[in-house]
Amino acid sequence: MGGKSYYCDYCCCFMKNDLNVRKLHNGGISHTIAKTNYMKSFEDPKKILDEERKKTPCKRYFGGYCKFEMYCKYCHYSEKELQELEKLVLAKKKANSKKRKKSTKWPWKTHTQKGLPISLQPIQLARLERTNFELSWG
């Protein structure tokens, strides 16, 4: 393939740019764990908090190393990290409740008399007669 190499964003490693090599790598456990770790960062904090509160702390992880990482059935969050996650969930909940209160079904009703934007209101003939069409443009 001419010396080109493939870079895996999840694992941060280079490999030969060959279809069979990439398939083998993408099917491996280390790549699967790295991809799961990355995708877990986009999950809903409330869901993560609920799942982690149910688990007991992992002795291997807090002892130094747990080979199962995200597939471990025990909790890998310290009590301090769980409290920070809880604060994040509460902040997100407050932000969502503020958004609901501010939004209205028809935002233009507060800006015009008839409840429609000016472009959608019926044409007013009196206003049209007062318009000067003989302006020069440009």
Rank of each mutant, 00 (worst) to 15 (best):
G2C: 07
K4M: 11
S5D: 10
Y6H: 15
Y6T: 03
Y7T: 07
C8M: 02
D9I: 05
D9K: 09
C12I: 03
C13G: 03
F14P: 01
F14I: 01
M15H: 03
D18I: 12
L19C: 07
L19W: 07
N20S: 15
V21L: 10
R22T: 12
L24P: 00
H25E: 12
N26L: 12
G27D: 13
G28L: 07
G28S: 15
S30I: 06
S30K: 15
H31D: 04
T32L: 08
T32Y: 06
A34I: 01
T36E: 03
Y38Q: 09
Y38E: 11
M39I: 04
S41T: 15
F42L: 02
D44V: 00
P45C: 07
K46H: 02
K46Q: 06
K47N: 02
E51H: 06
E52Y: 00
E52T: 02
R53M: 04
K54S: 04
T56S: 15
C58Y: 03
K59Q: 14
R60Y: 07
R60C: 10
Y61N: 07
G63E: 09
G63S: 08
G63L: 08
G64Y: 08
G64R: 09
G64S: 05
C66T: 07
K67N: 09
K67R: 12
M70N: 13
M70W: 01
K73L: 05
Y74P: 00
Y74E: 02
Y74S: 02
E79Q: 14
Q83Y: 10
L85I: 03
L85M: 05
K87M: 02
L90T: 07
L90D: 09
A91S: 10
S97M: 14
K99M: 08
K99W: 01
R100M: 10
P107G: 05
P107L: 07
K109G: 01
K109S: 08
L116W: 05
I118H: 07
S119Q: 12
S119I: 11
L120P: 00
Q121G: 01
R127Y: 12
R127M: 08
R130V: 04
L135M: 09
L135A: 09
